[in-house]
Design a protein around this nucleic acid. Structure first.
Length: 641
DNA sequence: TTGGAGTGTCATTTG
DNA sequence: CTCAAATGACACTCC
């Protein structure tokens, strides 16, 4: 059975359809419920991607460096979306499973007779989870055995049947009329939609028996099969005029991921409850006419039930592919937008500097006052060149623990002329790589001290024009920036952060920095890289959440579409079932028993065996099965309570 | 005054 | 062992 699951879900659906059309019942319910139950369990798990998403775990097997931010983002997002798909997909098989449970139960009911317990069981399973559905599926083989094993008592009561016919008891109509409440609780989708179909397309339900010539029975079945298989589209077109209601459009992410388990079983049932009650009488009336259309329809239901499932699989795959592509485009667009913002900001500053015609400004793109900058540009600043004022200022800066300052202040001074060889290797490119934020905490409070302090240097006062000072006041310095300037480190924070490791080590070795300066340089580099990493990490989280939300919306739309397809398919099955029912009555009307009397369609039915032969079976009396089913039903009710 | 959002930083893990 | 990247946790600031 486990192996058959794969074949069923992939390739044997069409075979199932064919078998179902000829009346061979295939217990696909056990396949579906057993196959997708683990997913249902997953669905109950936590769904918070923001809090508990292990992004690093999602990096697997793509042959790229796991630390690559872009690829990591892409694959992690895609993996997350796949997870959401896996979380969200059970809703469809679950719904389909419940639906098929009903259909199988209908078969069971048809074969075992209209037992009350069977009906209530079906209703219960529609509202229950897949586990119960699986339990119910386990009863189905018993029903088959009951059908195929003719008891002597039944033979005695019913009398001998015609040649080759299996003898069964029947009290179909009576029992159904005696216990309408139980039948009312029967799952509604297919039967009611059959009713709708019968009302909407009388041409299909119109029995052809009046024009039935003396044609071979096999030929009729073949024509019926060909009609059922090839003309499904026509049937769909015939039944499109019926009502199709979408269900539950507005759900949150959590609801979509968790609360979808009972979406169809409960919501759909409630939505259709009105129609159920209104149409039950028609259902009974039609049942009471002696035509057990449910005898023929279940097989069709089973077979055709696989049809939308196959389409679901195909649709899911296509949608997933398209969604991945779309998500990639969206993600790229978001990244491009972000990069463009940063570049635009940079370009704006560059253009402003160029318009001022100040080459120093061009170098010192984001220096607040240009103090440290100009001091650096004025000449090589050695660590030992710091005087008392700078020392005091250094202490004052380093002691300050201001709030965090954004990256807008990170683009700062250019190193001194003595280290221009380094700037040529990584100056302008680094600026574009930085992230520009517009937040500023208390960094403005730290602007004044540096300008005052460095102004005491005297030789660097030239760049302190009012314009530059005013511009600088609008900018901010990070703590590391201030520390670096206080320690007379001739590198900007951005340069320290973005320079390669080899160059960084070379800078540490070749400039005669003090141990304090070396430690500060290492801290600045570490903090700067970690800052970027934190920003990337947060951006990835937000993008992942955004992608998941979009995925949820797409899955909701897909769910609605599949529900519509399911309803349409149910109507199609109802139409085909009516055809089979009518054909069965026609065939029975032309058969004769031992006494030469035509077979009563209310007491006999046609069954198509696995070998393809059609045999006449009496409708089985449901006395024994009713009692057992009542017991199981009571047990289920007790479990619920 | 309080809480959410945004950010920086530290500690830790992983490759 | 070192380094880079990622990430959780915490603190801080702003609104």
């Amino acid at each position: 059975m486990q192996i058959a699951k794969k074949y069923f879900t992939e390739g044997l659906i069409q075979l199932t359809i064919l078998l179902s059309l000829v009346g061979v019942r295939v217990d696909i319910d056990s396949y579906l419920s057993g196959y997708y139950t683990p997913l249902i369990d997953i669905n109950l798990g936590p769904s918070s991607a923001y809090i508990q998403t292990p992004f690093h775990i999602l990096r697997d097997g793509y042959g790229v460096h796991p630390k690559c931010p872009e690829l990591d983002y892409f694959f992690a997002s895609r993996r997350l979306l796949d997870e959401v798909r896996n979380l969200g997909s059970p809703r469809f098989p679950t719904q389909l499973s419940a639906w098929l449970v009903h259909q199988v139960s209908a078969v069971d009911k048809a074969e075992c007779g209209p037992s009350t317990s069977n009906s209530t069981d079906t209703t219960t399973e529609l509202e229950s989870s897949g586990d119960e559905a699986r339990d119910d599926c386990e009863h189905l083989p018993d029903s088959d055995q009951e059908v195929r094993q003719t008891t002597p008592e039944q033979e005695q009561e019913q009398g001998p049947c015609t040649t080759g016919a299996f003898l069964k008891q029947e009290s179909d109509v009576q029992v159904k009329e005696e216990e309408p409440a139980a039948v009312t609780q029967l799952a509604h989708s297919s039967t009611l939609e059959q009713e709708n179909l019968l009302e909407s397309i009388p041409a299909l339900s119109d029995p052809p028996r009046h024009h039935f010539p003396t044609v071979d029975i096999d030929q009729h079945w073949s024509s019926l099969l060909s009609l059922s298989v090839t003309d499904l589209d026509d049937l769909d077109s015939l039944v499109t005029d019926t009502n199709i209601s979408a269900i539950s459009q507005d759900v949150s992410l959590h609801d979509a991921m968790v609360a979808n388990m009972g979406a169809f079983g409960v919501t759909s049932e409630r939505a259709e409850s009105g129609r159920v009650t209104q149409q039950q009488r028609n259902y009974f009336r039609l049942e009471s006419t002696g035509s057990s259309h449910s005898d023929a329809s279940p097989g069709m239901a089973l077979g055709l039930a696989a049809l939308p499932f196959a389409s679901v699989c195909n649709l899911t795959g296509n949608v997933c592919a398209s969604q991945s592509a779309l998500g990639g485009c969206l993600d790229e667009a978001v990244f491009d937008q972000i990069n463009q913002l940063g570049l635009e900001c940079l370009d704006t500053q560059l253009m402003g500097c160029l318009q001022n015609g100040d080459p120093q400004v061009l170098e010192d793109l984001d220096s607040d006052s240009g103090l440290s900058l100009e001091s650096s540009c004025g000449g090589p600043v050695s660590p030992g060149s710091s005087d008392m004022s700078s020392s005091s200022s250094s202490s004052s800066y380093c002691d300050d623990e201001c709030g965090a300052t954004g990256y807008s202040s990170e683009v700062d001074s250019v190193p001194s002329k003595g280290i221009m060889d380094y700037t040529t290797s990584w100056s302008p490119v680094d600026l574009s790589e930085s992230v520009w934020h517009d937040h500023s905490y208390s960094s403005t409070a730290f602007f004044s001290p540096p300008s005052v302090t460095f102004s005491h240097k005297g030789i660097h006062e030239e760049p302190f024009s009012d314009d530059s000072g005013a511009r600088s006041e609008e900018r901010e310095l990070s703590r590391d920036e201030l520390r670096a300037r206080a320690m007379f480190i001739p590198f900007s924070v951005l340069q320290i952060v973005n320079m390669p490791v080899e160059e960084f080590l070379e800078v540490l070795d070749s400039h005669g920095f003090t141990p304090e300066q070396v430690a500060l340089l290492r801290d600045i580099r570490r903090r700067g890289k970690n800052k970027l990493a934190a920003q990337n990490c947060r951006k990835r989280k937000l993008d992942a959440i955004t992608g998941l939300q979009e995925e949820v919306e797409q899955l909701q739309a897909q769910r609605d579409r599949l529900l519509r397809e399911k309803q349409l398919t149910a109507k199609t099955m109802g139409a085909v079932g009516q055809q089979i029912e009518q054909l069965t009555r026609d065939v029975l009307a032309r058969l004769r028993d031992e006494s030469g009397q035509p077979l009563n369609p209310e007491r006999f039915t046609l069954q198509c065996g696995a070998n393809g032969r059609v045999v006449v079976q009496p409708v089985r009396r449901p006395a024994v099965s009713t009692s057992t089913a009542n017991k199981t039903d009571k047990r289920k009710k007790e479990k619920k309570q």
